[in-house]
Computed example of a mutant assay.
Amino acid sequence: MLAGLLACLILVTGCTLNAGTGFADEFGGYLDTRADVDSHRVQGNNDLPGTGSADSRVQLRAGLTDPELAAAISEIATHRADQQIAHHNLTVAFPAENGSGGEAVVSVFLRLGDGALGDTSPAALETRIGQVREFAAADPALVELSATVSDLHASTTGDPFVTAGALTDYLRTEPPGVQRATARSGAPGSLGVVSFDVGDPIDALRPMVAILGVLPAGTVPRRWRASSQRPFTAPQFELDLPRGTDPAVLEAARQQAAALGVPLRALIAK
């Protein structure tokens, strides 16, 4: 390792110490020139001397047709900066309609460089855009769909089980690289989460609905989670109740879980 570093420092050609940040500066400057880009965030990573990577999120402006979106994403994905890096995690977001006609921000993810994922041709991207739009239309309360190298994260103002069901349908389109999915509703202090690995049955997580059903009106959990995501090998259930909750409510939730034959980690905040 030391010898490689010294060689990199000595050689005039072949090594750039800050490859990631150099790429980020170039790529961000390129995005600034595009009229179809509303905003962007590019993070360059100087992984090792002479190598680098980047993580980018690009928001395209409203009003573009699907062919225009596909062409824009393809051009952005295939743009080559002078500074070369090992890989580029690129998320491109655009507006869509949810099932109630409201606006949701959805995205397409592409991993570029080594370990590349997905077809960057306009035709393939237009198909993916249509699939993402269909996902959004299946959820009446969807707010956002974001993607990373192996995860899909969906936010909703409604029932996260509805969003999780829509995610399972979308996953049948085999978005490249996705291994895990999460649907969440609410914000810290009142958050519901359904998380699972690709291929897991959502019905195995639905006992959480019955557990929540024993809570009295007005008792809003600080957080609940139903998950079969790795490292779990079987569904797990969590329930955090607000401070001051009657212990009888906690006991009722535990009894419901026992009757359903599922594990429940439940507590009242102190």
Rank of each mutant, 00 (worst) to 15 (best):
L117M: 13
G244A: 01
S190G: 15
F135V: 02
G244P: 00
L152A: 01
R172V: 15
R230A: 15
A210L: 09
R230Q: 15
G244Q: 00
L125P: 06
E238K: 09
I202H: 03
L171W: 10
L212K: 07
S121D: 06
L250F: 07
A136M: 09
A234P: 03
T127M: 13
A123S: 13
F135C: 01
G158N: 13
T245H: 12
V143E: 09
I129H: 03
L145F: 05
G192L: 06
S121I: 12
R225Y: 00
T182F: 01
V193W: 05
D200E: 07
A210K: 11
R243D: 11
R222A: 11
L145E: 02
T182G: 00
G118E: 01
D197V: 11
G118S: 04
T219R: 10
L117V: 12
L125Y: 07
L117P: 10
T120Y: 05
V149W: 11
S121F: 11
L117N: 10
S185I: 01
A166M: 07
L215C: 04
S228K: 08
R225G: 00
H153G: 12
T173Q: 08
G192S: 14
G118L: 03
A154E: 03
V220W: 03
P242E: 04
D169S: 14
G199W: 12
D139M: 01
S185V: 05
P247W: 08
R184V: 04
P122L: 10
P176T: 11
D119M: 10
G186I: 02
T157E: 11
E174A: 14
V214L: 08
P140R: 03
L191T: 12
A226Y: 06
R206F: 06
S146V: 14
S155T: 15
I202A: 01
V214P: 08
G218D: 05
T219S: 06
T157G: 08
R230S: 15
E251R: 14
T182N: 03
P175S: 03
G199I: 12
F196Q: 08
W224D: 03
L117H: 12
E238T: 15
A226F: 08
P242V: 06
F135H: 00
E134D: 15
S185K: 04
P235C: 07
A138H: 02
A166R: 06
A166D: 07
P201R: 11
A147V: 10
A123K: 12
P176L: 08
P188H: 08
A210R: 11
R222Q: 13
S155L: 12
P231F: 01
R222V: 15
T120E: 07
G130P: 04
V209E: 13
L142T: 06
A183P: 08
A187L: 14
T168N: 06
M208L: 14
P160A: 04
R128F: 01
Q229R: 14
T173M: 04
T156A: 01
L171A: 07
A226R: 05
R225M: 14
V220A: 10
P188L: 05
T182R: 04
D159I: 05
A181F: 02
Y170V: 06
A253R: 05
V178Y: 08
A183I: 12
A217C: 00
V178A: 10
R230K: 15
F161C: 02
P201I: 13
D200T: 04
P207T: 12
V198S: 02
T233Y: 00
T157C: 01
L215H: 07
T163I: 03
P231M: 00
R180Y: 15
E126T: 13
L142K: 08
A138Y: 00
D169T: 15
T219H: 07
G130D: 02
D203R: 13
